[in-house]
Amino acid sequence: MKLLACVKPVVDLETMSGPHYLGSGASSGGTTCYRINHFDEFALEEGLRIKEAFPGTTLDVITVAPQSAGSALTRGLGMGADRAIHILLEQEGYVSPSVVARLIARRVEGSGYDLILAGVMSEDDMHAQVGPMIAELLSMPVATAVLHQTPIDEGRAVYVEREIEGGEREVLELLLPAVLTVQTGINRPRYPSLSKCLRAKKELPETIHAAAQPAIAPTETLLRVTEPRKLRAGLRLEGAAEEKAASLLAILREKALIPEARHAQP
């Protein structure tokens, strides 16, 4: 079988100081540190497991990202993917999921992939759109939030369980080629191996310059990024840790959420 995993590099917000980020990265003046979208590690791992179970299977990874974000591909190769495809964006910043999906669909069309795996959503944009859009653009069936899959019928179809509300699962069969968006918890993603990472660093990915292709008009524009509203009181405790602990205790006592002090036995 021929498999493809879509991986998105995301900016690690926790390690960033300075301006806030959104989209496939944005520049803060310095170099932006990217890591692979957590959700995509589950998709990659699922692809690797199919590859191991079905001899002769290959797994490619594809990303639509600026130059500095190529490390997500290295991670994919480090985990065990065969080849990397980088659709290179000139700029950092928000890219419409419809544009990402069209860029990927263009490259994938006619390449004979049997199964395309994507994450259930990206951590930064959280659209949950790119996977199902690729399926539509390539006229493939799609199952979202997949928690279990097995290729059946000698690789002509796939048995799928997808997560629906209340943790229940919907069971279905899709004819291949198909797209699956993979939900977390389906597997435990492996760590990349050092030797594979070192090899990956030497191999250049197949690079496609998005700018050299016919432009794709985005369907929406990002007007601005704001702070979320506060939905509860949000009182911030101040002082040293000990003072915060004392205040927390006092507040919980006042609200009778923690039992009153026990009286010491004589």
Binding site: D125, T219, L222, P228
Partner: peptide, 13 residues
């Protein structure tokens, strides 16, 4: 967006 840290305001074109 970003796990609820941010709010993105979008308009359809």
């Amino acid at each position: 967006a970003s796990g609820g840290k941010l709010v993105a305001e979008l308009a359809a074109t």
